[in-house]
Computed example of a mutant assay.
Amino acid sequence: MTEPKQRLLSLDFFRGLTVAAMILVNNPGSWGHIYAPLEHAEWNGCTPTDLIFPFFLWIVGVSIAFAMGNSKKDPANHSKVILKAVKRGVILYLLGFFLAIFGKLMAVIMDGKSLLEAFQTVRILGVLQRIGIVFIISSIIFLKCSTKTIFRVFIAILAIYWALMTFVPVPGVGYPNLEKETNLAAWIDRGILTEAHTWASSKTWDPEGVLSTLPAVGTCLFGILVGVWMRRKDVDHPTKVAWLFTIGIASVILGLLWDLQFPINKALWTSSYVLYAGGLAAVGLALCYWLIDVQGYKKITTPFVVYGVNAITVFFLAGLMPRLLNFIKISNADGSKTPLLEKFYSTCYTPFFSPINASLVWAISYVLGFYVLLYFMYKRNIIIKV
């Protein structure tokens, strides 16, 4: 008889909270008017917004431990599970690639632009692409390695990435450094992705680039290690909570200490950043687990659980909608045309709020609008699994 999969309501809640926050910070009314905590750090350092993506990858790791824990015990079934993980990871990558190229394809259809040019300048990597790649690699490591080996791989990843970034001279520069344009990760991105396929805002490097995917795998492995502990049935709830708080706080302290030599930096996904963000994620899950799964405060969970059970679906739709609506133009009195979203924002938001508050209220409205859709799906048990 197959052992039923364990499920943590607190994990669904934490995932939903993270995705809702991701949508909030990704969809301000105006990119020129954003409250500081809702912006990324300029380079080194960490704002609340910089914690959202690593939290999600860390949660992916915890989820892997819960979803594949039973399959790990049956080596004969590993090939089937890995194939399923690869399929899921590829779908995630393709969804991200579709978002990246969607605007260019619409320009081909509506403005007659070159299809070849659309593919020549599309960004190859991105958020969903990184999730897909990290998911595949981490799933294989989880299935094929013991817990001790996973921990050793995690430590090795952090150490190797630190050594590469701080000791390897950058070709063309002559010395190792952690600056935007001249660090080793940026050099690799330009060499492998080429400037035409990197993040559009930089043209010379990518915050979800090739080399920085290595420590992103570390973030996921951190989550896997926590998930393995949380699945244990020989440990009581208070011990699990105490352990989570302890490892979380210890990791934060280690991250802050490492920051003195290898700065916390989301764009580079530095090893100190992995420890710092992963530690805060562990503290966050510990708090959610204690309140929801142990103390039974479950009535407060619904608004974010509805986000958590359809996390990838809502993230994809939230990215697709503005891209689609921006191609719908509204005619103005002077004969010019304005994108539908811009027209709606300038008519319904900016006249009633200060610029920065109008931007925030728009983002909140966006999150609430998707909540209505997700709640409808949740009540009808519609869960779209990628």
Rank of each mutant, 00 (worst) to 15 (best):
I141G: 06
A277S: 15
L257I: 14
I136V: 15
W31E: 05
A118V: 00
G278L: 07
G32L: 11
E342Q: 15
L83I: 10
F315A: 05
V81Q: 15
G103R: 08
F304R: 06
S30H: 03
S336N: 08
Y349C: 01
E342Y: 11
T219V: 15
E42P: 01
D12E: 12
A358C: 08
G248A: 08
H40V: 04
A36E: 15
D12N: 09
P54D: 10
L291H: 04
F304P: 01
N357T: 13
N326D: 01
S10R: 02
G284D: 02
T219E: 04
W290T: 01
I52H: 00
P351Y: 03
V309T: 14
V314W: 11
T338D: 05
I155F: 12
F353E: 13
G126D: 08
I383T: 07
N326Q: 00
T149E: 13
T149H: 04
R15H: 02
M68V: 08
V367E: 08
L257M: 13
I382F: 11
C46Y: 02
K240M: 14
A318R: 01
C220L: 06
L143H: 03
G227S: 12
G319H: 06
S146E: 14
S138V: 14
K233C: 09
A21P: 02
L11P: 02
G89T: 10
C145D: 09
E195N: 13
Q129A: 12
K298S: 09
I264M: 06
L374S: 05
L51M: 15
T121K: 06
A21W: 09
T350R: 05
M1K: 12
W187P: 07
H197C: 07
I137R: 00
K84V: 00
L325W: 00
N183P: 06
L260S: 10
V252H: 07
N310Y: 01
D334E: 07
Y276L: 11
L254R: 07
I157C: 02
T147I: 12
F13Q: 11
L320D: 04
D236G: 02
S202P: 00
H197D: 07
